[in-house]
Design a protein around this nucleic acid. Structure first.
Lengths: 104, 104
DNA sequence: CGCTCACATAAGCACAGACTTATGTGATTC
DNA sequence: GAATCACATAAGTCTGTGCTTATGTGAGCG
């Protein structure tokens, strides 16, 4: 999965919203569709794209498909950002502050 | 500049390569074009997109346009990633390791 | 076994985006 | 001041992508 592909996948607001909704729970395709003004095939296609990018994983149970986030999916994105740490000190400092805040 | 726009801008490999070439130096549009199999207007359009996204800044000097990275440009991307820290502990740990490594 | 449900796939459409060539603009050079 | 240089803008083309409706597939239910 190339950097270009990762960015393309995440450039779609529906797909990013799906990731956010999967943050807490594992959800089925129908459950994910609630609140979106989108057809069932459209959601199915988005889920296929997210799965192809390694950002979510699927667990089949009968006729239901349960989706959850794949923890290593965003690794390429992190790797890309990490390349900028050398010439981007101020932002890294902010990130450090963020992580420090997390520890509390 | 929305998250969607940031991701769209960075989804183009030429634009990401431009950012990498601007990591060290401030460069002109013509200098940036070296090594790319791309026309002059295409590069000009990419630079306009990057500038519109707040990822680079322009300094005009006579007929030359000097471009450099805008240090706060990737802030929205960081903010988006930060939203995942709550349910994404393993990756954050890796990021911590990265930052620790940086300090040396 | 026929129907419905959950989801995937197919096919077609419409818009967005990256590219091209052509041209415009303003600064420099002779 | 005419030509050239660095770059921007215009306009058109072509491909990719996200959406739709229609249909396929396989599981559960009466």
């Amino acid at each position: 999965m190339s950097d270009t592909d990762i960015f393309k996948v995440l450039a779609d607001p529906t797909r990013r919203a799906v990731l956010e909704r999967l943050a807490d729970d594992e959800l089925t395709a129908t459950q994910l569709r609630e609140g979106f003004a989108i057809s069932q095939p459209a959601m199915s296609q988005h889920l296929a794209v997210l799965r192809g990018a390694g950002l979510i994983s699927e667990r089949r149970e009968g006729r239901f498909a349960h989706y959850r986030v794949a923890p290593d999916g965003l690794a390429p994105l992190h790797a890309w950002i990490a390349r900028y740490r050398a010439f981007w000190p101020s932002r890294i400092d902010n990130l450090k502050d963020l992580l420090k805040e997390m520890d509390q």
